[in-house]
Design a protein around this nucleic acid. Structure first.
Lengths: 340, 340
DNA sequence: ATTGGCACTCGACGTATCCGAGTGCCAAGC
DNA sequence: GCTTGGCACTCGGATACGTCGAGTGCCAAT
């Protein structure tokens, strides 16, 4: 139904509305875009677009604003993702390049995205369910306090303190260390957890209790997915766009702080495999984020898509910029982490 | 100059204003507090208080609101810190009691404070400048990639990856491990850093480069004060009180995200040694937080005051509740961490 | 299909008005 | 010498109203 020009009008409306925050009228469009037709013609097209529920008028005789559906069409069909400027690309290289470890890299990443997009940014910690145990280290802080350190082949380190009922000497600890490494090393975290549980049965009865404590500690540790954590930055950006939220911004802030909500949302978006995905307005209603849009992209460690990063902002956000920045940073990250 | 009753009036004004968010007039006071005098008398007292700049009128012929100075007097002289309800005390015990490690304990702590006070809460990571090195562990992930793990007697674990120009075999690594432990173990982090630097000179030339890398890595690691990190929770609470900030809440959010600002402020408040300290409104102007008040308390690990926790909120905050909650949680934390 | 014209709508904005809470002051009273 | 009731005064907030203008929908003409 909607003509070629009609879609161009939709694109113009989205762009102008995002830029000006005000309903855009037919006159504004012919002024700011070279359509070569009169305002009346644009009005006819707009009537069509309104019928298709791609745009809406806040009240009779006002300009139009895009609906969620309108944004969807814009994102899917009308926006070409233009690459970042060389300055921005350079910023990514220099700002992320000097990171020393994963924690710092992700912390810098999330701040960078927030800065590039002017939105709230979030990076999901990589889930290491497919990474393998490289080494298990046991350090006695006291005879009955043993620090268990788990090192994976993705360079991740997890530590946990085990409190034992009876003390253990260095020699025994060395034996246990050897045994645990034998059992766990080279396996995925999940496999290692299972194997460790099985190991309990064949344990030297004298150290059963000790081994049990250590094994369950390590097993639990292995079970913990770091993928259930988010790093967030740019809350100030969210507050800055507060007036874009008709309802309160409170729910959004709470959802961000809660993390679980956002993580679920990230999880759902993982279905869309290839590249950047966008979830718009009411599409997020199940998560209590009906007025926000989320732009995310997966990124990979060692070639495996393990996690997501993205931005959260008002439905009326600059999708083009957000998508470009999210895509670029995700790619850079995948490239850097792929070298591991 | 200000009579006994005058101070009582100030207390009433602070309490009513905090509760109602509206300038409080003489009539309201006689209604809600049993002063046994008429509104006219209260008005006389209020004129006195205004002369002393303890209260102010937003405009002619409106009720009065406390000034920063008024809040200061209220906090210092007029508010008795009433202990928490048993339910709240119970909440602290149960909510914090089940924490397994320091990270989780602090994460739970900050959420608890935010919940108890309805303000934004922050906990400074303990600074371990006075804690001692218990153990240094080196783990070769690859011949030229060595993971350095530093364990302190306060149970803190720091890890860092060292990239070496030339590979190192297990045997050499074991020797180095022994040497580093000899040098560093038992010393404070600062001492260890110095000692490690000195050790470089007497190094076996063959491994000079290797040792240098490891030593500087560890030294830098030791130098890093974890006290320069904050855990924050309850941003939603800050947004909820947004209307209490005449200027924008943006600066506050930015300061919180920046962390450095808040950490400096925490540092300054450390001067006031005994228990809860409060910094009000313009007292925070150097930090760009002229409209906010900060309530903090130190807490101790192993008997040493090492860090602070507190809340940040509008000048018009419930100081009594905030102070009580901050004090109670800090005490609980000190008690729990003192057992280490 | 496009266009200019035109009546119509409705929110934004400025002005005038009213209302009431609250003050300051004063003279009278305990 | 405090305290109190009375009273005039002030000022912000709410309400009502008129004006203005951007923008629309529709229609007849091209």
């Amino acid at each position: 139904m909607v003509s070629e020009r009609g879609l161009a009008v939709l694109r113009a409306i989205v762009q102008d509305y995002v830029a000006s925050r005000e309903p855009v009228g037919s006159k504004t469009i012919v002024e700011r875009h070279a359509f070569g037709v009169s305002a009346a013609t644009i009005r006819n097209d707009m009537a069509l677009l309104e019928e298709e529920e791609l745009i809406a008028a806040p009240h009779t005789s006002s300009g139009r604003i895009p609906t969620d559906k309108g944004y969807r069409v814009f994102v899917d069909q009308l926006s070409e993702v233009r690459p970042l400027s060389s300055a921005q690309r350079h910023a990514i290289e220099t700002f992320l390049g000097e990171s020393s470890d994963l924690d710092e890299l992700l912390a810098r990443t999330v701040r960078l995205i927030a800065q590039l997009t002017g939105q709230l940014a979030a990076v999901q910690y990589p889930s290491f369910s497919t990474s393998r145990v490289r080494h298990v280290e046991l350090v006695a802080l006291a005879p009955e306090r043993v620090l268990c350190i788990l090192i994976t082949d993705s360079g991740q380190v997890e530590q946990r303190l085990a409190e034992l009922a009876v003390g253990v000497d260095e020699e025994t600890l060395a034996r246990l260390r050897g045994r645990l490494n034998e059992v766990a090393a080279g396996r995925t975290l999940a496999e290692a957890a299972t194997a460790l549980s099985g190991e309990l049965d064949s344990a030297d009865p004298r150290h059963a209790q000790l081994l049990h404590t250590l094994a369950t500690t390590l097993a639990e540790q292995a079970r913990v997915q770091r993928g259930d954590r988010l790093v967030v930055a740019g809350a100030a950006n969210l507050v800055r766009t507060e007036q874009d939220f008709a309802g309160s911004i409170l729910g959004v802030i709470e959802a961000i702080e809660e993390q679980v909500v956002l993580l679920k949302l990230f999880g759902e978006m993982a279905a869309d495999q290839h590249g950047v995905s966008v979830s718009i307005g009411r599409e997020n209603a199940p998560f209590g984020l009906a007025e926000t849009s989320v732009v995310t992209s997966p990124f990979a460690i060692a070639g495996r898509d393990v996690s997501r990063l993205g931005v959260v902002g008002p439905t009326r956000m600059d999708y083009t910029t957000s998508m470009a920045a999210v895509r670029a940073v995700a790619r850079y990250l995948s490239r850097t982490l792929g070298e591991h």
